[in-house]
Simulated scan of single mutants.
Amino acid sequence: MVDDISHEGLRVLLRDEGVSFQRIKTWKTSKDPDYATKKARVEHLYAIADGEVIPELGEPAIVFCLDEFGPLNLMALGRARRQAQRP
Results as ranks from 00 to 15, higher is better:
M1V: 09
V2M: 08
V2D: 11
V2H: 12
D3P: 02
D3L: 13
D3V: 07
D4L: 12
D4T: 13
I5E: 09
S6I: 04
S6E: 02
H7K: 12
H7C: 04
H7M: 09
E8L: 07
E8Q: 13
E8P: 01
L10R: 00
L10W: 03
V12S: 04
L13S: 11
L13H: 05
L13V: 08
L14H: 02
L14K: 01
L14A: 14
R15C: 03
R15F: 09
R15Y: 10
R15H: 10
D16L: 10
D16Y: 03
E17S: 09
E17C: 14
G18T: 01
G18A: 01
V19T: 08
V19C: 04
F21L: 12
F21Y: 13
Q22R: 10
R23I: 07
I24W: 10
I24C: 11
I24E: 09
T26L: 09
T26E: 12
T26W: 06
W27N: 14
K28I: 12
T29R: 14
T29N: 05
K31D: 12
D32P: 02
P33S: 03
P33T: 00
P33M: 07
T37H: 09
K38Q: 09
K38I: 04
K39C: 06
K39G: 02
K39D: 13
A40T: 10
A40C: 01
R41P: 04
R41M: 06
R41K: 14
V42L: 13
E43K: 08
L45V: 00
A47L: 05
A47F: 07
A47S: 13
I48Y: 06
I48H: 01
I48V: 09
A49W: 05
A49E: 08
D50S: 14
D50G: 13
G51Y: 00
G51M: 05
G51L: 01
E52R: 15
V53I: 15
P55M: 03
E56Y: 06
E56C: 00
L57G: 04
L57N: 12
L57K: 11
L57Q: 09
L57E: 15
G58M: 07
E59L: 05
P60S: 03
P60D: 00
A61G: 15
A61M: 08
I62A: 12
I62Q: 11
V63L: 05
F64A: 10
F64Y: 14
F64P: 06
F64K: 11
L66I: 13
D67G: 02
E68W: 11
L72V: 14
N73Y: 08
N73E: 10
M75C: 10
M75W: 15
M75Q: 15
A76H: 10
L77P: 01
G78Q: 13
G78R: 15
R79W: 07
R79S: 08
A80H: 00
A80G: 06
A80W: 00
A80I: 00
R81I: 13
R81S: 02
R81D: 01
R82Y: 07
R82L: 13
Q83S: 13
Q83M: 11
A84N: 04
A84P: 00
Q85H: 06
Q85I: 00
Q85K: 14
R86N: 08
R86D: 01
P87A: 08
